[in-house]
Structure formats: structure tokens, C-alpha cells
């Protein structure tokens, strides 16, 4: 019984790490721009397909495909910011870019549907079959990769934001864009950087999810809905809160899978979301709420 609980805990951490990667991009962009990119879900999906094609069509290694997916995500983030958010920056229009990204999302999904069809793709890597045992516990090599990549990404992001000049400038832009400009920081460049980082994480998350996902052009949607819940539970724009909330949701999901029908998991997650909104509307780490990024 105990072993089972620990095993499910491990599985929950793996799942949670994936959610964290996807949710971090949303939180970063929100923290810096107070905007939501609805096409983020499709960056996850396109990241997953990028990994699929690198491994299946080009016969590249899965680890290489992770890098490719991250790069594709970064490119998409760059384009969406350059086309939608940057031109409207500081023009006082909050709804227009939001709606435009919904349009981009619809275009990407239907474009992918036309190109790839509705039938789910089977994505197996040599790592999904390989099982690593730790005494009575086991993880697939894929899960170990997920944990390692996610942990590395989180540590790097944290270090970047805390200890580098550019990362601190990014936080300054999030806190007071106008004053950041007075410091000689070009806010538009850091906003671009935020999109690139956040979207690279989405692409990477997609590639890590791909082998466990039902891979269709709409694959991003199921993940993004949870990512939004995680961003809200973590306190919009709060990095630490998002990481905590992501791992928590992963754990809860893994635990409830044991006792509940999988179809009920979303009900549990969103029940938690509603409870959070009522009990702690400012998110898990309430006193740090105003620190966006």
C-alpha cells in the first residue's frame, strides 16, 4: 500500500513537471505583459508533432527532437509576439491581442487538421518501453527524461531570473514597464524574450508529452485547460506558485487515478481551482502575489 502510494507520487511528479513546463510559459507572458496567449496550447501540440516528425520521418534521436521542438516553439512565440502583441504594445488595447490569439489558435488547429488528419498518431520512443527499477518502484526511461529535462529547465529559468542582468531586467519590466524604459531597458525586446522562452517551454513540454498524449491536432487543448487552472491556482504571474501548483495538480491527478475513474480527474482539478478561488483568490503564495515573474 505504501509502495503503491510512493509509486503514484512519482508518477504524479512526472505528470506535474509536464504541466509546470506548459504553465510556466503562460505565467511568464502574463507576468510581463498581463496578456494571455491562447495559441499557447497549439505550441504544445506543434512541439509534439515536431518531435514526432524528427524521430519518425527524419529518424532523429528523441533527445534531439526535444531540442527541435523547443526551437519550433520559440519560433512560434517570436512570430505571435511580432505579429500580434508587439504592434499593439502600449496602445491600451487589451482585448484585441487576446482575441487575435484565439484566431491564431483556430488557424493552427485547423491547419494541422488539414495537414495531418484527425486520426491519433502513435508515438513510441525507445525510452517509453525501457523500465528503470528502484527497488519496488519503477519509472520508464521516458519519465526519467521528463523529470530531468523539466527540473533542468526550471532551475535554469529560476537562475536566469534571479541572477542575470537580463533576467532581473525582465522582472523589472514585469513590475513597471515604463520605469524599466527609463533605466535604458528596451521593454519590447524583453517582452520578445519572454515570449521566446515561454513558447520554447511549451514546445519542449509538447515533445515530452507526445509519447503519453493522444497525438492529434487538438492535443494541446486537454493540457492547456489544466495549465490555465495551474496558473490561477499558483497566482497569476507567480513563477514559484505555478511550479508548486503544477506539481500539486500532477500529484492529485496521479492519486485520484487510483481510486477514481480517469474521466473524473478534471472534475477534481477544477473543484480544487474553484475552492482556491474562494479560499485564496490570490493564489498559493499569497503574500508574493504582486510579484509578476
Amino acid at each position: 500500500m505504501f509502495v503503491l502510494a510512493v509509486q503514484q507520487g512519482l508518477n504524479g511528479l512526472v505528470l506535474g513537471s509536464l504541466y509546470v513546463l506548459v504553465a510556466l510559459g503562460l505565467t511568464l507572458v502574463y507576468g510581463v505583459l498581463v496578456q494571455i496567449n491562447f495559441a499557447h496550447a497549439d505550441f504544445v501540440m506543434i512541439g509534439a508533432f515536431s518531435a514526432y516528425f524528427v524521430t519518425h520521418a527524419l529518424h532523429g534521436d528523441y533527445l534531439l527532437s526535444l531540442a527541435a521542438a523547443g526551437a519550433v516553439g520559440a519560433l512560434l512565440g517570436y512570430l505571435v509576439n511580432a505579429a500580434i502583441f508587439a504592434p499593439l504594445l502600449g496602445k491600451g488595447s487589451e482585448l484585441r491581442p487576446l482575441i487575435a490569439t484565439i484566431g491564431v489558435s483556430v488557424m493552427l488547429e485547423n491547419g494541422a487538421l488539414a495537414l495531418l488528419g484527425p486520426v491519433p498518431y502513435a508515438f513510441a520512443t525507445r525510452y517509453s518501453a525501457e523500465v528503470i527499477r528502484f527497488g519496488p518502484l519503477y519509472l520508464t526511461a521516458q519519465s526519467v527524461i521528463i523529470l530531468a529535462v523539466a527540473a533542468t529547465a526550471i532551475v535554469l529559468l529560476h537562475g536566469f531570473l534571479r541572477f542575470t542582468f537580463l533576467g532581473k531586467a525582465l522582472r523589472a519590466v514585469a513590475q513597471d514597464r515604463e520605469t524599466a524604459g527609463l533605466m535604458g531597458i528596451a521593454p519590447d525586446r524583453l517582452i520578445m524574450l519572454t515570449f521566446i522562452i515561454g513558447s520554447a517551454l511549451a514546445g519542449l513540454g509538447g515533445a515530452l508529452l507526445a509519447p503519453v498524449l493522444v497525438l492529434t491536432p487538438f492535443a494541446g487543448t486537454s493540457v492547456i485547460v489544466k495549465a490555465f487552472a495551474i496558473v490561477i491556482i499558483g497566482g497569476f504571474g507567480n513563477i514559484e506558485g505555478t511550479i508548486l501548483a503544477g506539481l500539486l495538480v500532477g500529484l492529485i491527478e496521479a492519486m485520484t487515478t487510483q481510486v477514481l475513474d480517469p474521466g473524473l480527474i478534471d472534475i477534481v482539478v477544477f473543484g480544487l481551482l474553484l475552492a482556491m478561488l474562494v479560499i485564496r483568490p490570490t493564489g498559493l503564495i499569497a503574500e508574493r502575489r504582486e510579484e509578476n515573474v
Binding site: 513590475q175 515604463e178 524604459g181 527609463l182 535604458g184 528596451a186 521593454p187 508574493r288
Partner: peptide
């Protein structure tokens, strides 16, 4: 833009101080 003017040598201590509160 303001960031380019800073590069030329214009700095402003803004009304209300505007320190970055979480840095």
C-alpha cells in the same frame, strides 16, 4: 523612446519614486 534617450545621457527620477518594489 525613453531607453534610447537614456543612452544619450538623459535620466529621470520620476514623480512618486517608482522603485521596482520586488527587486
Amino acid at each position: 523612446p525613453s531607453h534610447a534617450r537614456l543612452g544619450l545621457g538623459i535620466a529621470l527620477v520620476p514623480e512618486g519614486r517608482r522603485v521596482f518594489p520586488f527587486l
